[in-house]
């Protein structure tokens, strides 16, 4: 089921993020996915996140579908021009993938191939617009397609941006370009979502709050340094540092944010839960139970 359909049926949607392996062996990755599949509605598969070269999103989405898990294909504009992107959208549709999260993508300077030529022929907004076109049975150039797609395009907003207005305007632009759901960048202070939730409600587009699991103080410091778009607030850093069991504390922090998001957003999107079993723990702690 697509995220947009789910939002109509359910009070609270849970998605989680899965990172493809750096290499050809996907067994562990699939195991992680199967472990958490019982308690999430869909699994996002990242696409060269942080500009790190890995197995592609589409291959894993397909493997997930074979195991009856609903995937969200993440698609970025960094590595492909508009021809390749549209072609990949058709590929995804052919393989039964319906949810597509349209992203600009991280700059190559941040990743493990800083010498690469980056593309950015399109960006997140024009990619959404391209999906809309394919759904109408034409390509970006207006050529008629043999068979239209029926994809459900989604997008990301960063509630931590400062100033916040340019992000809000971009959110509007994304909705106009066809975004049917939002998954936000990680938030630690739920009040930051206020203006975004307001826009999402006005436009009737479901919004899932991004929840990041901080497993250790070192990891929190690492994301502060290397992951763009947000900072872990100082009081949470202190809480983690003072904790005898930081992973446990990280789970509690995530669960707290989930509780705050209930009744406010249409769901949550859990990121960076890497270790097996963490997503289940966070959800159980956050009071979200689901038949496995």
């Amino acid at each position: 089921m697509t995220i947009a359909e789910l939002a109509k049926k359910k009070d609270f949607i849970v998605t989680a993020e899965l990172t493809p392996p750096k290499g050809a062996d996907y067994e562990d990755t699939l195991k992680k996915a199967q472990d958490m599949s019982g308690c999430v509605d869909a699994i996002n598969v990242t696409d060269g996140q942080s500009a790190l070269m890995r197995m592609g999103s589409l291959a894993l989405c397909h493997l997930l579908r074979e195991r009856d898990i609903d995937p969200v294909l993440q698609l970025t504009c960094r590595d492909r021009n508009r021809i390749a992107l549209q072609s990949d959208l058709l590929n995804a549709f052919a393989l039964g993938v319906r949810n597509v999260l349209c992203l600009t993508g991280d700059h190559v300077a941040l990743g493990d191939h800083p010498e690469a030529k980056q593309v950015f022929d399109l960006d997140s907004v024009s990619l959404l617009w391209a999906v809309q076109k394919l759904n109408k049975g034409v390509d970006m150039q207006g050529n008629t397609l043999k068979g239209a797609t029926d994809l459900c395009p989604g997008a990301v907003v960063n509630p931590n941006a400062s100033p916040v207005e340019p992000q809000l305007l971009k959110m509007e632009r994304k909705i106009e370009a066809g975004a049917r759901f939002f998954q936000t960048q990680a938030v630690f202070e739920i009040f930051r979502l206020d203006p975004f939730v307001k826009t999402a409600r006005e436009k009737n587009v479901p919004l899932l709050a991004g929840i990041m699991v901080l497993r250790t103080p070192a990891m929190a410091r690492f994301v502060n340094r290397h992951v763009s778009g947000f900072q872990v607030p100082e009081d949470l850093m202190a809480e983690l540092e003072a904790s005898p069991d930081p992973t446990r504390t990280g789970v509690q922090i995530a669960a707290r944010t989930i509780n705050e998001a209930k009744g406010f957003c249409q769901g949550v999107h859990i990121m960076n839960a890497g270790k097996q079993g963490l997503v289940q723990q966070i959800l159980a702690e956050g009071g979200i139970t689901r038949a496995a």
Partner: peptide, 29 residues
């Protein structure tokens, strides 16, 4: 830094570019 045409990526903080915060202003800012 990414040559984006339709607004800032989410990463700009206080007017600095997420990619080169020390040396570059965010063009979209």
């Amino acid at each position: 830094s990414k040559g984006l045409l339709n607004g800032p990526c989410g990463g700009s903080q206080e007017g600095r570019c997420e990619v080169f915060p020390e040396t570059r202003e965010c063009g979209w800012h």
